[in-house]
Design a protein around this nucleic acid. Structure first.
Lengths: 181, 181
DNA sequence: TCAGACTATGTCAGAAGTGACATAGCCTGG
DNA sequence: CCAGGCTATGTCACTTCTGACATAGTCTGA
């Protein structure tokens, strides 16, 4: 029915009412491990969701040329989201620039490739440390019926991803260092 | 200059001449760990690359309404690809349907969510076994100047990814099982 | 010999996503 | 008091990607 972005917006609104701006902020790196979108896309999608009756809004006075709109999920929106959650996800297309560069890395100067991966490793380690700090703020996993479970579970995914990625980068750096020696 | 898809195509052509059909086959799951695209996109991009002088083609007789076109990378294409490889990749937007579903999973029936993840786990274990078989075919990592290094290194990434993903799914299943008990 | 799979190239409408532009009040610190 | 950042919504042109449609020769096995 709705696009995946629509469900992402509903997933945010399921936690409470928000303006489009708030949703955009929630769906921006490094806050969001679950979906990313720009505000231009979000405002457009909110209009579609409102037209479909999945969200409703209330206009309140606020700064800016227009008044702000506070959105909330309607019962129909909740039904749609709940039904969607347990359906199997579509297989996602693999499109990772770093992996593609790796595939073509045999063409390039190994020292430059090594630097590229060393820098990526640094970034992953940094992000990993950040996620680990965040994880400590949870005192263990929340109950699966708690909204915070969603945050914790996605954070766990991010944590595992950064570890895997850092390890891979470390392996690449090692490969390219031994080639030089 | 070119789009990322353009570089993906060049990365394939760097290994030898190919038809658009061949490239599409190489960039289709589960063959490709490096980039995915449909043939409709690839034929269009090849035309752009040819216009830009990064690839050239030769028409040969083949089946179908049109003759087949065998593409190869030009020296300019090689230069462009080599220069691009060592440039830092753009940060990729996180858009993973399963992670999004996880974020909203607290709303749904835990048993249905458990089944979703059990099925995902099964798929990741299957793919992992497949990748492990493929890895055995390499007798250790090729030299970084060997085209096969690109294949091996991306396979290593896929291997790490599937392991991380499987572990996360296993954790999710455990969380949702204990909730039921 | 004939069905069906595979090789092969392309178009097109539409959806999804990007990046820039536009506009303007509110709040905080120097 | 004023600059600069934050809140806030929106449009628009453009690129990228998807999925369906179209077309037709070759090769293989039943």
């Amino acid at each position: 029915m709705t696009s995946t972005l629509g469900y992402a917006i509903l997933a945010v609104l399921a936690r409470g009412e928000r303006t489009g701006y708030d949703i955009a902020a929630a769906m921006r790196r490094p806050v969001s491990y679950f979906w990313t979108a720009r505000h231009s896309q979000i405002h457009a999608e909110l209009q579609k969701l409102a037209a479909g009756g999945l969200v409703a809004f209330e206009t309140r006075h606020g700064p800016g040329p227009q008044d702000k709109k506070v959105y909330r999920m309607t019962p129909e929106g909740g039904d749609a989201l709940r039904a969607w959650v347990t359906e199997p996800p579509r297989e996602r297309p693999e499109r990772d620039e770093l992996v593609l560069k790796t595939y073509a890395s045999w063409l390039a100067d190994p020292e430059l490739v090594r630097r590229l991966f060393a820098e990526q490793l640094r970034m992953h380690e940094e992000r990993l440390a950040e996620y680990e700090r965040e994880e400590e703020l949870f005192g263990g996993p929340p109950d699966p019926g708690d909204p915070r479970f969603g945050n914790y579970a996605t954070l766990r995914c991010g944590l595992g991803y950064e570890r895997h990625r850092a390890e891979w980068c470390r392996w690449m750096v090692a490969q390219l260092s031994s080639a030089r020696a």
